[in-house]
Design a binder for these strands. Structure first.
Lengths: 236, 236
DNA sequence: GCACTTGTGTCGAGTTCTCGACAGTCTTTC
DNA sequence: GAAAGACTGTCGAGAACTCGACACAAGTGC
């Protein structure tokens, strides 16, 4: 399993970045950026989920987009020096390749393909955000809960997601008690199981039925804009 | 009053686009893009407000970002051919300069300054979207109503905004009856007046007090990222 | 002037979610 | 093994908003 942006690079473009890529294992809960931080490192996840969270003055934080193996964190920092707008936090244990912003910037200057990928990624991430704007205004917590689980499920290699209800409540911007109620409803429908700090996905179909359309809209956007995994090969 | 992106261009860069700019007056309600439309024209508003709206399958539509004289509509289409993700609709009567995407693309290839401005604009628009994600999840309709009015007020030359409560309900993604109730509350506080299809802003200070922080966060983002108006000159 | 369309005011029942509180359970640490 | 900390279950009052309905008012076209 490999980051899709990196594996989409033709060999000559990949050679521009390869010498500067280092592997990193990111544990759950690790903070990669806070709002205002200078973006000096770009992370290309091979698996796992990184959340972008918007922070409010009163300390409330809510997820505004997620990044998985189809994308990268901090990519816009390769175009020009930039501050993070969000908090970036590691959602599930994540293996990633990372590279310094200035080094990726040099590759960006040399490679049209890299410029194109960054451009398309920005567009897809923007699409993710605008869909979430609508989703948060219009859809029920239950639908958003399912959407969140499905998006996460796509990006990890397991049917088991390690997270607490309290944490998920933060992501969705609702009370913990509301998450408990929704989780119970989905449990009774047989779509998930859960225990302390863990959710098991039993029925993707069930979750898709309860989820709002936003899950699919965002996924199709990524598919349309970004390179899809090749079934016959993988660069390890 | 002039579009800030255009007026920030140094003369030699402006000369690249000037021959292709044509003036257009956009009436309220005019649809500029629907989701999936190819972006073939970029609009630089001199005043007025253009809304980006995310559409749902059931026909619901909600505003995900707005564009005024500090930005442009369709700018990403100058980088590479692109589909609109949103509906773009003219909110208030708008004077704008427009240019074909392919023509702006040519200027984009030649001018580093133009590339930089488009890049910064994309970042600011992304910041607008992620803030709105949080705002829609966490803040009351009353706060969002005020935020919307303030943002609009910044971009027009008048204290009078022409819009119906029904339309604003769509923008905010709530029931019309809720907008009526909120409008009444603000009227009683003396912050606005209104009649059929018109809202008058009486007290910006009042609206700012009721509005959420999101108004200011987004505004400061634009100020940080994009060129600010010069007080001593204007290019007509 | 009249019919028609569109926008606003109001009402009330119902749903969703908040917010605070507290008990119970699981895990970690010493 | 005991204590402490973290996570979950549940309850209940209350606020915010939905949703449908209907009356009224203000413009619009003929």
């Amino acid at each position: 399993m490999q980051n899709r942006l990196l594996s989409a690079l033709p060999p000559e473009d990949y050679r521009l970045v390869a010498p500067h890529l280092t592997h990193v294992d990111l544990e759950r809960g690790r903070l990669l950026y806070e709002p205002g931080d200078r973006i000096d490192t770009i992370y290309f996840p091979h698996d796992g989920v990184i959340s972008l969270m918007t922070l409010m003055e009163n300390g409330a934080a809510i997820e505004s987009a997620t990044i998985g193996r189809e994308g990268a964190l901090g990519l816009m920092g390769a175009v020009s020096p930039r501050q993070s707008l969000s908090r970036a936090i590691v959602q599930t244990p994540t293996r990633a390749a990372r590279i310094g912003a200035s080094q990726l910037h040099e590759a960006w200057e040399k490679s049209a393909k890299i410029r194109e990928l960054i451009d398309m990624h920005t567009e897809a991430l923007f699409g993710h955000a605008v869909q979430s704007v609508a989703c948060n205004a219009l859809h029920s917590v239950e639908a958003r809960f399912c959407r969140w689980l499905l998006t996460c499920h796509d990006r990890i290699a397991s049917d088991t997601v390690a997270l607490t209800q309290e944490f998920l409540a933060d992501m969705l911007g609702v009370q913990r008690t509301t998450v408990t109620a929704v989780a119970r409803a989905l449990l009774e429908k047989g779509y998930i199981r859960y225990r302390r700090g863990v959710v098991d996905i039993i029925s993707r179909e069930g979750l898709e039925a309860v989820s709002c359309e936003c899950y699919d809209v965002v996924r199709r956007n990524y598919e349309r804009l970004l390179p899809q995994p090749k079934v016959d090969q993988a660069r390890g």
